[in-house]
């Protein structure tokens, strides 16, 4: 910008350039907004709360209860002896229902590891009666109470309802299936069986109604190795 050249004898008058006001106003407004937001968030934070972490620390349940009675060391040893006696001797089976693996042990020795199938965890509703079935493989310790060659499956109601059929009357020949369970069956309480399958490609998946399915070779090994009364640990 060029300044005007004053005429000789006249004072120099410099008119300052007109300052723009809006950037300042904008800055001021932003500052005010930030202040309000900060104050509001501080107020909200004061009104609310959040999670804070600290290392796990718990009081002693015995210190909290002065009348609490504790067993004697001798009683503790008796309990430990009982626990030790519960350890499986001889052949026993574990079934990992998450990874679908069945293992046969003799003491600490692993005799066989097999891919199996376990329960889906699905729930089936009967549209007529409202009954429902949960297709879980039960967890915990279960004994082998029976062993059969060429087991016959007495199909329960859910086997028909699941396929959309009305269940035949009890004792009907339609209820008996001598193919689906394979060549061997090891029976646990409540109708849960370790048995074979026609659907071998599904081994390793949770697809059953609660039973444990095995391939033919593994099933034969388990049938021949695991005696009646052996314990099965499902977890």
């Amino acid at each position: 910008m060029s300044l005007p050249i004053p005429e000789p004898g006249r004072p120099l008058v410099v008119v300052p350039p007109r300052r723009r006001l809006w950037p300042r106003l904008l800055l001021l407004a932003l500052l005010a907004l930030a202040l309000v937001a900060a104050a509001a968030s501080a107020g909200l934070a004061r009104y609310g709360g959040s999670y804070a972490a600290r290392p796990f620390a718990a009081a002693s349940s015995l210190a909290a209860d002065p009348d609490a009675k504790v067993i004697s060391p001798a009683a503790a040893e008796r309990i430990e002896a009982r626990l030790a006696a519960l350890r499986p001797r001889g052949v026993y089976v574990t079934v990992d229902t998450y990874r679908n693996r069945l293992r046969v042990f003799r003491g600490e020795e692993l005799l066989r590891e097999a891919v199996c199938s376990t329960g889906t965890g699905r729930v089936l509703h009967d549209p007529r009666t409202g009954r429902k079935w949960v297709f879980d493989t039960p967890l915990g310790e279960h004994p082998i109470i029976d062993k059969r060659r060429n087991p016959v499956w007495a199909k329960p109601d859910w086997a028909f309802i699941e396929e959309g059929y009305e269940p035949p009357p009890p004792g009907s020949p339609d209820r008996f299936d001598d193919v689906s369970l394979g060549g061997f069956g090891l029976y646990m309480p409540d109708g849960y069986i370790i048995h074979g399958t026609l659907f071998k490609t599904l081994l390793g998946q949770r697809v059953t109604h609660g039973c444990v399915r095995l391939g033919d070779d593994d099933l034969e090994f388990v049938y021949k190795t695991v005696p009646l009364g052996a314990r099965v640990f499902l977890y």
Partner: peptide, 21 residues
């Protein structure tokens, strides 16, 4: 392994009692 308790930003936590065993 940690305990997470809800608390005001500046203040003490209120949590159910935790005693073991």
């Amino acid at each position: 392994l940690e305990l997470l308790t809800y608390r005001p930003l500046f203040g003490d936590a209120e949590a159910p009692p935790l005693a073991i065993p």
